[in-house]
Amino acid sequence: MKASAYGKHIGCIALFLLCPFILTSYGVKLASEVLIMAIFVMSLGLIIGFAGLVSLGHAAFFGLGAYAVALLGNHWENTYLLLISALVISGLAAFLSGLLFIRSSGAYFLMITLAFGQMIYAIVYKLEDLTGGADGMAVVASPNLGAGPIDSRLGFFYLTAVAFLISYYFLRLLIASPFGKSVRGIKENESRMTALGYQTRTYKLAVYTISGMLAGVAGALYAYFNQYVSPDLLYWMFSGQALIMVIVGGVGTLVGPAIGAGFFVVLQNYISSFTDRWPLIMGLIFVLIVLFGKGGIMQIAALLWQRFRPQRNSKPAQQAMAKEGNGIESVKS
């Protein structure tokens, strides 16, 4: 990376961290929610875009993380401990389920993850004495990184912002690493990688587990965020929404799913305040994205960028886009 590239990154981060000063208090809260969702959706984007594993049960890991904080938070106060428990529990769930499911592919993988998610949902729903069942339960633990409880909105925003940045750069490094390259290689052509002597299933399992862990952390943060958990966090509809956020944002990129999360949460929030007909409008938006925005919002943004930016620079931009990933079309099984 060149110095100018570093500069860009630092500039972006700075802008990002200054956000709260132009937002209302409500906006800051919504931004925190978007960031948590972005971590979750990035974790799903990782397995879809880079490992070709399309899951419809990812909310299970998010929900497990959230319930870990809710349930263990009754006994422990330490935020680090709770976050790590969430990470370990969801990671373990992802590892064990992955161990069984990874050999399925395509639609079968989609469905078996759906089934797994629904089973976890049913368990949480049924353990009424422990989890409150359908009613959900209040979260007692409050976030505290050692410097006193973080109870202000601004403080929580920075907590989620830091978590988001760590997740983002971690995933960036992961994808650029030799491990990441192998995973992408497996997605492009599994039989070739097998022929080259790669244990492709092990690679897939590893990336699935990492994704589950990250989803768990996002869930844990969400439990802190709302101070309330309910089985809706594990329901397949929520997995479906996350999947949509990934696709809307643009598959095969890291930023895409994060932007998709923001787009979805904010848009749905405002449209549903504006009209009861919000499912209709959201549906139309999805259809239009498919028809006109080949490759999701990221692609639309790139196209607009190309059209309006000075001509001489258009080529590198295109290349940059291609490097980050090339949209939906690249994912076929």
């Binding site: 809260k29 009613d135 709302n226 309330y228 809706d232 929030n269």
Partner: peptide, 30 residues
């Protein structure tokens, strides 16, 4: 409940309503 909390904040903070009425679901009221 998660959506309800978001809507709650919108009503109380953005819209600055004087009081609330609702909800249908027990999970939401909790």
């Amino acid at each position: 409940p998660q959506v309800a909390l978001r809507k709650y904040r919108q009503l109380v903070e953005s819209e600055q309503v004087d009081l609330l009425v609702g909800p249908i679901s027990s999970s939401v009221v909790y």
